[in-house]
Design a binder for these strands. Structure first.
Lengths: 202, 202
DNA sequence: TTTAGTCACTGACTTTAGTCAATTATACAG
DNA sequence: CTGTATAATTGACTAAAGTCAGTGACTAAA
């Protein structure tokens, strides 16, 4: 990963990319994410080829946008009082995440993003860094739960954290395919409660 | 839902649909699921419009195919000895389902099918009937667990069944986006064990 | 300064999914 | 048997994503 020299060529390229990105955002807001690449490049005043030298696909741009949203999970987590039980932290953080997904990101973007992940014309690096932040939060909570004796000491903390995040993604996928007859916030809470307390007796 | 009379018109239409379907399968096997609709109708000797009067979209045909696979879950379930604990049944059935998904259906079809579910120009009725069968199996197992006293009597059986199936779908989605660096069978078992025993102490 | 090479950029082109008005074949009522 | 309604089928057409050989402005090395 070498930083490119800031010569005029590089600067112009960055300006072009930004023009494409900005035009896309305006058109997305105006006409939704079905906006064609043709209309984006027309508004940006560049050629189609230029679009594709900056973005691998139409999805790439959308994923760029999603990943640049500041979702503010980390802030929410650090703002939590530290004297509540870790199981409650888990629930609260997860509720917050679902709120953001439902209200700030929205069904259309989530669908596109999940579709892009499957078809993957897309560089997943940024997506993974997003995961890493989430993962750290869950890891901390579960570690805390084990330390404080609320959670089983036999837990594989890393694995459990990953499974919490997978549950969020799973429920969000379910939301995509069942929309609007599915309440993802309600369901993720039910799922977490199952994960916390288990199905088996004692 | 009225049964159509079997006049020659209906029979011919069914034959046309079958010719399209069979050609598609041959081409899918030969060139993968990227096969174009044009080449399918060329091989079937029908027009493109005809294709679209039988299938809403290219995905529809693929979904049709996936749903017509006899996945044999039900048989596997009924062949289980009835004296093993319900928690083991849950694990065994789920392992079987994952085996089928991984080996009989395969990553390419699963990806297409999951993509189709998200983009959904597609009639989900058949997908739902597939779910219904699975759902019945899980419902029975969990009911048995409650009756025999292995599972908590306070469980909402229907909700827990749904969440088991959602977990399968969630993990399968994860497999799609992480392939090949993800072992869905291993992970679904871990997830189920968490669901069964819980994270919290006693 | 010259010159070879790089890189953003161009736009016509290809590919493919999906549409729809027109056409043809069949069913059915009188 | 005749005319009319209905359903299946056609294929030219649209729309949109993505490609690629070519262009010229800019960089950097001699």
């Amino acid at each position: 990963m070498e930083a490119k020299k800031e010569n005029s060529r590089v600067i112009k390229a960055a300006q072009t990319k930004k023009r494409i990105y900005d035009s896309a955002l305006i058109l997305f807001k105006r006409h939704g994410f079905g906006t064609s690449v043709d209309s984006i490049v027309e508004m940006a005043g560049v050629s189609k080829g230029s679009f594709y030298s900056h973005y691998n696909s139409k999805f790439s741009l959308i994923i760029d946008y999603v990943n640049n949203l500041d979702l503010g999970y980390a802030d929410f987590f650090t703002s939590l009082p530290s004297d509540i039980p870790p199981s409650s932290m888990l629930i609260l953080v997860t509720e917050k995440i679902m709120d953001v997904i439902i209200n700030d990101v929205g069904i259309d973007l989530i669908k596109l993003s999940y579709e892009a992940q499957i078809t993957k014309t897309v560089n997943t690096d940024i997506q993974l860094s997003y995961d890493r932040k989430l993962y750290q939060i869950y890891n901390q909570i579960i570690q805390l739960g084990v330390q404080q004796g609320e959670f089983k000491s036999t837990l594989d903390i890393e694995s459990v954290s990953k499974h919490c995040i997978m549950s969020i993604r799973g429920i969000t996928y379910e939301w995509c395919i069942r929309f609007p007859d599915f309440d993802p916030k309600d369901e993720i809470i039910k799922h977490l409660n199952l994960l916390l307390s288990g199905i088996k007796k004692g």
